[in-house]
Simulated assay, not measured.
Amino acid sequence: MTWLHPTGDWDGTGLAHEGFVFSSDAELVERVVPFVLEGFRRDEPVLVVAGERVRSLLAGQLGTDLGRLAVFAAAETWWRGGHGTLQAYDRDLRALRAEAPSWRLAAEPVWLAREDGREWSRFEAVANRCYDTMPYYSLCLHDAQRLPADVLAAVARTHPLTWDGAAPAPQPAYEDPACFLHRAQPAWTPRPEAAPVLPVTSPGQGRRALSVLLPAGRRARLGDVVLAAHELLVNALGAAPFAELSTWTDGDAFVVEVADAGPGLADATLGYVPPDPADGARGMWLAWSLADDAAVCTGPAGTTVRLFFRA
């Protein structure tokens, strides 16, 4: 294993984000063990968060060196939904930044094998933007025997680096985060002709309208719907003198749409980026986290956001 270059030319001053797909125990061990040992040689904190199988393999290979890991944890307990998981991850990264000049993480997002965990691919994409200056190497482990083909395709599209057998190399399928999110969000279809469209000039007006428009069978989500729409309306009314509020039902989802004729969003990924504790801007993050899904269409002619609330 000594001929491998586990982190290539990474100098520890910014994020390196590698998607490693393995098909056998031997492939996993040959990639991860040198990665861990290199971290020990460089006196970097090494964190491993993985599923039971991966942890067992690494424990057998590392022996007494297992105790040198800064973290050795079960990934199975970490899933809290996309926003909740990223928020906890963000908190841990900021704590590490305060303590260490650089560190490395080998993580296996086992929840990608679950239907409700596939949204994590969107957060993997956004990490390339919101953590690009964080000084750590993120080696993301993906088991080809467990994950569906579409999830593995998303791994390539959301990780700038891949393993070429000897060193990290640029991933040719990698996409800009905004481009990936645009493709990953619910398909954008025309608003139904029968959907009510209300001009709104204040968030309170929108809240009152939604309290009436929400169907009786969905009243359990009233708080989420009203608060999420309020945040969108605050943003929309900051960009234009009025907004349009519309609602309809699409299959099992209640859809809330807020549209404005402002200049468009400077960054369409904001709903997936944890708010900076220093500036307190959290509207889109909160709205996205309260909904079950979201989609955005933005440009010079304005912005339209749709939130989906399932029963």
Rank of each mutant, 00 (worst) to 15 (best):
E18Y: 01
R68F: 03
P177S: 09
A243Y: 00
H5I: 03
R94H: 08
P170Q: 10
G67L: 07
A266R: 12
Y89A: 15
D252Q: 15
L147T: 09
P186S: 10
A26K: 09
E52V: 05
A166V: 12
G12L: 01
E193D: 08
F308E: 02
L286D: 02
P160A: 10
E27Y: 05
R104C: 08
Y174N: 01
R183D: 14
T269F: 08
V258C: 07
L69C: 03
V225Y: 06
P277R: 13
A166P: 00
L4S: 13
L28V: 05
E30S: 14
H142F: 15
N235G: 07
W78M: 13
A187L: 12
A16D: 00
D267C: 15
A70Y: 02
A95Q: 09
A173C: 09
L96C: 05
H142N: 10
Y137H: 10
G51E: 00
F22M: 05
L105S: 11
L37G: 09
E175H: 10
A229K: 02
D43T: 03
S202W: 06
F254L: 13
G206I: 08
G238D: 07
G262Y: 10
P168M: 06
C297P: 04
A287W: 00
G217K: 09
V126R: 01
W78F: 09
L307N: 04
G8D: 02
V32A: 10
P34S: 07
G84F: 10
E124T: 01
Q87E: 14
L227F: 06
L28Y: 13
L86T: 15
V36F: 01
T247S: 07
C130S: 15
R183G: 13
A127E: 05
A100I: 03
R114Y: 02
W120T: 11
C140M: 13
A228G: 02
A239S: 11
F123Q: 05
T162C: 07
L210D: 08
W163H: 03
A295S: 15
T77R: 14
A291D: 07
S102A: 14
A59G: 10
S23K: 02
P300V: 12
A311W: 08
E76A: 15
H230I: 04
A187W: 07
V32Q: 03
R183I: 11
M134V: 15
T201A: 13
M284Q: 11
R94E: 12
R42D: 05
V126G: 05
C140I: 09
A281C: 08
A295F: 08
V234C: 11
V197H: 06
R53Y: 01
T249N: 09
R118E: 14
L105Q: 07
W248V: 05
A236L: 05
P199G: 07
V36T: 06
S121A: 14
G60N: 04
G262K: 09
